[in-house]
Simulated assay, not measured.
Amino acid sequence: MFHIVFVEPRIPPNTGNAIRLSAATGADLHLVEPLGFSMTDAQLRRAGLDYHDLASVTVHPGLDALWQALLPARVFAFTASATTSYADIAYRRGDVLVFGPEPTGLDARVLEHPDVTDRLRIPMLPGRRSLNLANSAAIAAYEAWRQLDFAAP
């Protein structure tokens, strides 16, 4: 299908929700350390409900390990400062959707990485800083999956 990446996530319920998103869509979820919680965290388990066994989740010790595991692939880094809308992309199987930690977002080492295909934004009203991490991932994942005709992985 495609890959959802959370770089250094800090809030367990957001990652728990992403686990449910992964289970519901067939997307692979990748978490890049350091994590702001333990994978056994009660809030993470609660937010993921009983979907943990239905989701594909990989924890990478750092960005280099992530790139080694997923490249070559098209990589889309989500940031509020981008000019290209997530809705303007023709997604393909194997695409990588990368999201940064709460509350800072992706830093320059990811945004400027030579393998990042494009930087994308999710439109918001003026004066708004950001969306919730799990909500952002869901918006992007469902658009990518819709373009794949909601096909099974």
Rank of each mutant, 00 (worst) to 15 (best):
M1K: 12
F2L: 04
V5F: 12
V5A: 12
V7L: 05
A23G: 15
A24M: 02
A24H: 01
T25E: 03
G26E: 03
L29W: 10
H30T: 10
L31G: 14
P34A: 13
P34V: 14
P34Y: 14
F37H: 00
M39D: 03
M39H: 05
G48R: 10
Y51L: 02
Y51R: 02
D53C: 04
L54V: 06
S56D: 05
V57M: 14
H60E: 13
P61I: 08
G62Y: 01
A65M: 07
A65E: 12
Q68Y: 06
L71A: 15
P72D: 09
R74Y: 06
F76G: 06
A77F: 14
F78T: 08
A80N: 07
S81T: 05
T83G: 08
T83N: 08
I89C: 04
I89A: 07
A90E: 14
Y91N: 00
R92M: 10
G94Y: 03
D95A: 00
D95S: 00
V98G: 07
P101F: 00
L106N: 09
L106M: 06
L106Q: 08
D107F: 03
D107R: 09
D107L: 07
A108V: 14
R109P: 05
H113R: 01
V116G: 09
T117I: 03
D118V: 01
R121D: 04
M124E: 01
P126E: 13
R128V: 05
S130Q: 01
A134C: 07
S136T: 04
S136F: 03
A138Q: 14
I139Q: 11
Y142V: 02
Y142N: 10
E143D: 15
W145C: 03
W145I: 02
D149P: 11
A151R: 14
A151V: 07
P153A: 15
